[in-house]
């Protein structure tokens, strides 16, 4: 009985999807933390029906407390199909098997690549607007985003004068040049340590090397640094605490830095504020 319904469900999906192509999608499912948050901003009320379980994690997601009307998915094909979506949005590198399966079954799946710079974010906002047929809302976000960004980037100053900001994450991870993190750091008026030492992609930087590299300011993630586990141990290491005194430490909310959404503006603003507060003290 259940199987028959499921097959019927597949069949309906296959026939009906093309018919919706010119209309706004009515049941949108997102399978990636970053598309969750972007879709949530841009979608019409009720248009987004499901987001991932990570979106409900307060340490990773800015919309964790706004999901009471949404289904939570774990990126599994079965639960996605049961939601009867007419558009599925996924990250380009995660939940691959589910994406392939959904496509084989005729579900429209759109993929978003992770953003590495501000242009990527602009592109995603536009793309999300088009997919959801909410171009106007997307455009408003885009304009606000551009205006803010312009304000950040127009403060010119000698690059060599800028302080170096080292961002040190769990397990000693450091991002390199060409990452969103480094673009955000530069927009906030810093030089980015990972880019300065010629790191590309991301990699581990031992505590020794961090101390020898000696960035002017050290930024760590407020929530994750408190976790009682081994990967956060290095952030509480006595050598780190002694070398980077209170006035050289910045604690930030990692949620603004994970995803390429308009929220990165708030991340940059918070960083600027934190640093300026230190200078005035």
């Amino acid at each position: 009985m259940f199987r028959a319904r499921l097959i019927l469900c597949f069949a309906m999906l296959m026939f009906l999807t093309p018919a919706y192509a010119d209309q706004a999608p009515r049941r949108v499912v997102s399978m990636n933390l970053c598309t969750d948050q972007l879709a949530y901003m841009i979608a019409a009320p009720g248009q987004l029906v499901s987001v991932t379980y990570i979106a409900s994690d307060p340490s990773a997601s800015l919309i964790h407390d706004k999901l009471s009307n949404l289904h939570i998915n774990h990126g599994l094909a079965e639960e996605i199909l049961r939601l009867d979506p007419d558009l599925v949005i996924a990250g380009a590198y995660t939940t691959r098997t589910t994406v392939h399966l959904l496509r084989r079954l005729g579900v429209q799946v759109e993929e978003f690549k992770p953003s590495r710079n501000f242009q990527d974010i602009r592109n995603r906002i536009v793309k999300m607007g088009e997919l959801l047929h909410r171009e106007k809302v997307a455009n408003n976000y885009l304009e606000a985003f551009d205006k803010n960004l312009e304000a950040f980037l127009k403060t010119p100053s000698d690059n060599a004068q800028k302080p170096v900001l080292g961002i040190y994450s769990l397990n000693s991870y450091v991002a390199g040049k060409g990452s969103l993190e480094s673009e955000m750091t530069k927009a906030a008026g810093f030089r980015h340590m990972g880019a300065e030492i010629g790191l590309s992609g991301s990699g581990r930087l031992s505590l020794e090397s961090l101390i020898l590299t000696n960035p002017d300011q050290l930024m760590t993630w407020r929530r994750w640094a408190m976790l009682p586990n081994r990967s956060a141990d290095v952030l509480r290491h006595p050598a780190l605490q002694r070398w980077f005194s209170e006035e050289r430490r910045i604690f930030m909310d990692q949620r603004h830095w994970i995803c390429g959404t308009p929220e990165v503006i708030n991340g940059i603003k918070a960083l600027k504020r934190a640093y300026e507060g230190k200078k005035n003290d």
């Binding site: 994690d57 397990n171 000693s172 031992s206 994750w224 976790l227 586990n229 081994r230 990967s231 006595p238």
Partner: peptide
């Protein structure tokens, strides 16, 4: 099962061991 998204990376440490960045504590 851990809530910490980085915990899975720690499996290698617990299975293979390391002395890197340990402290006097």
């Amino acid at each position: 099962l851990s809530k910490n998204p980085f915990a899975v990376l720690e499996i290698v440490f617990w299975m293979m061991g390391s002395f890197a960045d340990r402290s006097l504590q």
